[in-house]
Design a protein around this nucleic acid. Structure first.
Lengths: 154, 154
DNA sequence: CGTCGTTAGTTGTATATTACAACCATGTCC
DNA sequence: GGACATGGTTGTAATATACAACTAACGACG
């Protein structure tokens, strides 16, 4: 090649590319566990954590367009894991809560997901776990900032 | 919640979820720069790096199904950035090389991508850069191994 | 109390990514 | 030569996702 590719650059490129490959397994496995996809599990878990969640907040949490949120939540409602109820204060807004069934599924998926996490954790030297998480988080926020500055994806 | 969610678990879940959000910007921006998508750039770069690349090798590099490889390469051929030539040794196999135009685009996209990387790099404390990359790589291979063991995406 | 602009959510439409299966051509091994 | 494997392509289908257009409800201001 006659032109200069920053050595560091290709390293980052590879990193990003490998990351997106590694994550593909979670992101787009149609069924992650217990008949829910990974995104759906994410929603389930967020609602479980907060107890009650406005759909509008989910846009930000998942950082997707609002129409996408609707469509991600729909199947969970259909399967009876989540109920949507109109907010008392704002009749446009919708609150999400877990049904009994939803809680049950949430618990089961966690069991299954824990196995995955444990396997990951097992492969990271015990004493470096914290360090690894911290480092990833640094990269993450660097990428987010860069993105916010419009440097990627013009 | 009445059941136990491993504290560490939710941390990893959040990490994975944030990672896939952060990467979405690259992965699925239809046009990354110079009218090529991120995946296409990846292909361009791989071919540029090796000089000549068998399509079959690309399956592994991108870790996608072979039909997907075909379809990812197609637009690059149509746009005259890549040529496919039958291998001399094996008439089934196809080799990819960059055209002059392809090299030119590759260079330009690198310029544009470098800006992104630089912005990222700028946000990581200089002295920790190496450490961060190493840590991400550790997580990465842990995830890959876990996946290979079939712990995720049963 | 209307009107206008804003916000929450849904639906229509379109695109990209991707896998799987079926298929063809070629290679390899016995 | 025939059986099986490998490299590629195409058909089909599912998912993820965005944008635009729309409805309903809210809020503020005259």
């Amino acid at each position: 090649m006659s032109y200069e590719i920053p050595k560091n650059g290709r390293e980052v490129l590879k990193l990003i590319s490998e990351l997106s490959q590694a994550l593909r397994c979670c992101q787009q496995e149609p069924v992650f566990c217990e008949d829910v996809s990974f995104s759906q599990f994410l929603i389930l878990d967020t609602v479980a954590e907060k107890g009650r969640l406005r759909l509008a907040d989910l846009h930000d949490i998942l950082s997707v367009e609002k129409s996408t949120t609707t469509r991600l939540v729909n199947p969970l409602v259909k399967k009876g894991m989540i109920v949507r109820e109109k907010s008392d204060h704002d009749f446009r807004a919708i609150n999400l809560t877990l049904t009994k069934n939803g809680k049950e599924v949430h618990r089961k998926v966690w069991e299954c997901f824990s196995a995955f996490i444990d396997t990951i954790a097992m492969r990271i030297p015990q004493e470096r776990t914290e360090e690894v998480y911290r480092a990833v988080r640094i990269l993450l926020s660097a990428m987010r900032d860069a993105h916010a500055e419009g440097q990627c994806c013009t």
